[in-house]
Design a protein around this nucleic acid. Structure first.
Length: 285
DNA sequence: TTTTATGT
């Protein structure tokens, strides 16, 4: 009889624990969903097919989301929204920080003497100007860095980021931007090409969407590591399908097929006035 | 310095 009572008590405790687990999981999923909706348009990037090299997990940061790969030891994508701002002053440049969420350690000193820059994926300036100080500090996580040649990072890529914030953002209500690396087609060809543990990309893509234009508009670029830096931006235009082919990612999974075909299958320059900025010189040269 | 590394 005593044993039966004890079991009942156990049962009740288990039941209460179970309620907490179920409710907690539900709450976590709800928050995760809310966060993703707030930071993305038409869903977070997914895998086009089940390949180890496009497998990733999502990190939430202030101001942007990250798709981190423990296979590449690098982020496959970052995603954030931008809008034009009145006050363009930002706080002082934060320090680089390693990110405890990465399985393999990437230290702030990991890139030293490699010849590569610690190139931001989610940019310091634009994120700081739009999303504030906490977000700015979060852009200095090493999980937001990839090895970039100085000519790309400080010149061509910087010019593109400046065009996005200073030229494209004021033209539309908001922008959805997704950036990340492009690796060689065969994993084994590049597997030892690393800075510390971080695999060195062959190129970088940036997708810029104006979601509130009707219909939505998109621009996409792929820029290789070996540039001079002063090339016209429009030399690197591609459509989103090409970025998906080269990364194995599916970028706007919630977009209906017909609209996806239209948005992702062509290079449509109307409305961007890219010519105004394509040859604008960089700030650092 | 809307990007960094390097050297002090």
């Amino acid at each position: 009889m005593a044993r039966l009572l004890r079991w009942r008590r156990h049962g009740r405790r288990l039941g209460i624990a179970l309620v907490f687990v179920v409710a907690g999981t539900g709450l976590w999923q709800f928050q995760e969903r809310q966060y993703r909706d707030e930071y993305t348009w038409m869903g977070v990037p997914g895998q086009e097919s089940l390949k180890l090299t496009s497998l990733h997990r999502v990190f939430r940061n202030a101001g942007y989301l990250v798709g981190w790969s423990d296979v590449r030891v690098g982020s496959l994508w970052v995603s954030y929204q931008l809008n034009a701002v009145e006050d363009s002053d930002i706080g002082s440049r934060p320090s680089f920080r390693s990110d405890w969420r990465t399985l393999w350690p990437v230290k702030t000193s990991s890139y030293a003497k490699s010849g590569y820059d610690r190139g931001h994926l989610a940019p310091n300036y634009a994120i700081a100007a739009v999303h504030g100080r906490e977000a700015q500090v979060d852009t200095f996580f090493m999980s937001n860095m990839l090895p970039q040649t100085p000519a790309l990072n400080r010149q061509l890529w910087q010019r593109l980021e400046e065009a996005v914030m200073d030229h494209f953002a004021p033209r539309f209500e908001r922008l959805q931007v997704i950036s990340g690396p492009v690796y060689p087609e065969h994993f084994m060809d590049n597997v030892f090409n690393r800075v510390g543990l971080v695999e060195v990309p062959r190129a970088f893509y940036k997708i810029i969407v104006a979601p509130d234009a009707s219909p939505a508009k998109a621009l996409a670029f792929i820029m290789p590591q070996d540039v001079e830096g002063d090339e016209p931006l429009d030399d690197y235009l591609v459509n989103i399908d090409e970025v998906e082919d080269k990364t194995g990612l599916d970028f706007f999974p919630d977009l209906p097929d017909k609209r996806a075909q239209q948005l992702e299958g062509q290079v449509d320059l109307r409305g961007w006035a890219l010519d105004d900025v394509a040859n604008k010189p960089g700030r650092f040269q």
